[in-house]
Design a binder for these strands. Structure first.
Lengths: 207, 207
DNA sequence: CCTGAAACATGAGCGCTGCTCATGTTAACT
DNA sequence: AGTTAACATGAGCAGCGCTCATGTTTCAGG
């Protein structure tokens, strides 16, 4: 009954040393290549070649091309959550505006520094079952972020808070995507606008 | 200097009768097929077969597979704009809330009735240069919608109104995508939430 | 140290894809 | 009738995702 979010994506989880390294190398090569040739241009053969791993080995780990990209999205998600949670605990920002500030800034930082993050972030934008992965992943993010917002929302229904965070997250994702499509470093005006949307909505919505 | 939005997407625009019909048949087949097999599953050979057009003819019109899907997105966009403009002129809704209501409802209606609209809407979600097409297309929508919102925004800078509409549109797109991913008929709760985001933000933003 | 089973490694090759291009046919205007 | 531009066609090429038969390595239990 172990609820594995990678279900259907992975064929075999590496347990020995060498294959664990190969697994990571494959994800790194995938991320790099996504930045260079885009989602559609990525080929499994080239990923394998760059990671210096035979093609057969790639398919021992990942169920298919989408699975490979999906696994990268999961790694990104995990990393993002860890960073946001860390900063929130360390800085204990005040109110909704404070949380929005930290979360958006952390996303922007990753977008600027993590290879491939711009193409797949938490789930390779709009791709069939990868979209489902995105939705599930974004739901997971929402769930974890809720624990921070909950303290701010007066006597609100948990389900209500959940939906608000979920919607806010989806908006943030899309406006930030626009910000980075406009300017590779992230259009400052649009990043500010993203925070504004979140603040307006969440302020109205929670209490 | 004719600014053609289909630039790079089309190879030849049909001018004679027969090929114009084939062109439309190809877009129809593409839309239908997208609903059946999804974005990744769509093959140009099957589109051609369904439209009863040889594969070579498909490539006389469209530069590639993405071009075909992009052309469908443009057709959707044109149709959406005509419908929204029509309703706004006919009903002359009051205030921001009225415009939001009409626009979101029209999107929902198309999502429920137009084949393929759920997969590509205005630009095949997040795909390389098709993403650019989406962005350009959404910018075009924003430009046209601005003429309606402008009357509501007191002495606001045109550029400020533009950016607000642009951001609002991106949010609407993503929240509605979530609404239809959750429920094939469009989750009513999330559709309502979409309107709420837009109202909160635009109310704060435009005066 | 031996042994068996599980984990891991490998790349030729299958079925299929997107797309081209050489060769022809039809329509429209002078 | 002649000329040109628009249109039609499908066999076939290069390259893709992915499989699978055959082998090698790791490591716990005796």
């Amino acid at each position: 009954m172990n609820h594995d979010r990678n279900a259907g994506m992975l064929r075999r989880t590496p347990v020995q040393r060498r294959s664990a390294e190969r697994f990571e190398r494959l994800l790194d090569a995938c991320a790099q290549l996504l930045d260079e040739v885009g989602y559609a241009g990525l080929t499994t053969k080239e990923v394998a070649r760059r990671a210096d791993v035979p093609i057969g080995t790639l398919y021992q780990f990942f169920s298919d091309r989408e699975g490979l990209i999906g696994a990268l999205a999961v790694r990104n998600l995990e990393s993002f959550l860890a960073r946001v949670a860390g900063r929130l605990e360390r800085e204990e920002p005040e109110g909704i505006a404070g949380i929005v500030e930290v979360t958006v800034d952390e996303f922007v930082t990753m977008r600027r520094t993590i290879a491939g993050f711009g193409v797949v972030d938490f789930g390779a934008v709009g791709q069939d079952h990868v979209l489902e992965a995105t939705l599930d992943n974004n739901t997971a993010v929402a769930g974890r972020l809720r624990s921070f917002t909950a303290s701010l929302a007066g006597g609100q229904d948990d389900a209500e808070v959940d939906i608000a965070v979920r919607v806010a997250l989806e908006c943030a994702d899309s406006v930030l995507k626009l910000a980075f499509a406009t300017d590779p470093q992230g259009d400052a005006r649009l990043i500010a606008e993203c925070k504004r949307v979140l603040n307006s909505y969440l302020h109205d919505r929670l209490r």
